[in-house]
Design a protein around this nucleic acid. Structure first.
Lengths: 189, 189
DNA sequence: TAAAAACGTTGACTTAGGGCAACTTTTTTG
DNA sequence: CAAAAAAGTTGCCCTAAGTCAACGTTTTTA
């Protein structure tokens, strides 16, 4: 149950088995269905999820009701609505498993307890923040000045798994274009 | 010379004067001219800047040579090319003072020395990361699904100082539209 | 302080990509 | 496994916003 998580933690820092076991003991296994909502727009994020199996999507909807995908996290990664988790304001975004998934879930209280009492876990948290920051910047700023074709090429180069695992519709909403535009571009290469 | 920085640090955490003085002693004052480049596209970011006076802009250029502004930091704030500062890869962005400025500059080495030896400074760094993460997300994701008019309204609401302090051209490049579009929209209110 | 450079504004024209609809294909579920 | 629902594709048309150029204004610098 905790192998993937332990592997993830070991990959980030040198950590003994005892601490590892202690950290893992705070995570509870939950199973979710396809399209199950983990967090609603108005809710405050109070859980951090580690994905054992499946996929979590972070998205919003525009005032016209169009969905806008922000992030997809797959097996072996952490995901939550981090801004809300940090500042405890309503998330203004949704968290959802887009397929049947198995998640390890830790409450915010326990998470910060670990951050405050386990220096190694604090270090891992800092690394998660740093990495999250870098990735978000690269992803979003990377698209500045890109036209639709550039974006599709970018996704093929840097996140080809997305095209395999996620519906066209969601990829399109991730890239900020309509499904028809994505469809047209793919047919031209 | 260090008043503004001390005020910033005190605002983040309870911190005694001795530690404060020690932290400040690692910062050196530098004066820059209008449009002076602090970091080039291919360079690795090795300094963190605190702005005593003036303004730092973070920007890139597209392959066609069009400038794209990412962030403006004003008096009393920190700025650097953070992804590069963290992972020591070429920045792929520029750092520039857009007006005559006075900066307090700390080297990466000293910065991480403080993070590793002063728990309070580590805490401040985590807060800078968290805040930077939240702000970047809000800023960029906030524009998803916005047309040009929405973006201008957004900037008026959340960052009106920008319109006062920064040229139209740079604001336009920050909002991801051409200067003519921004001009046209402003004339319609 | 005068010449030069950069910036801002506006008009005419062009274009990338969105909206909608019809149709086909795939996926989901009872 | 069949019916229903959702997703993907494609054509047609339209619109928001970009480009380019001309011109006036402000800013910079020698």
């Amino acid at each position: 149950m905790y192998q993937t998580l332990e592997k993830f933690l070991k990959g980030k820092t040198n950590i003994d088995q005892e601490t590892l076991t202690k950290i893992c003991s705070f995570f509870k296994l939950i199973k979710t269905k396809r399209n199950e909502l983990l967090l609603n727009y108005d809710q405050v994020s109070n859980h951090y999820y580690f994905i054992n199996k499946g996929c979590i999507r972070l998205f919003t909807t525009s005032k016209e009701g169009v969905e806008n995908s922000r992030y997809f996290a797959f097996e072996g990664n952490f995901a939550t609505a981090l801004p809300s988790f940090i500042d405890q304001q309503p998330a203004e975004e949704y968290l959802q498993t887009i397929e049947k998934s198995e998640l390890l879930c830790i409450s915010r209280k326990d998470f910060y307890y670990l951050v405050d009492t386990e220096p190694l876990f604090a270090k891992i948290y800092t690394e998660i923040l740093e990495l999250g920051f870098i990735m978000a910047q690269k992803r979003i700023y990377g698209f500045q000045g890109f036209d639709a074709l550039d974006k599709v090429k970018w996704i093929i180069k840097y996140q080809p798994q997305l095209l395999l695992k996620v519906s066209n519709k969601m990829v399109a909403s991730y890239l900020g274009m309509s499904p028809s535009t994505l469809s047209r571009i793919k047919s031209k290469l």
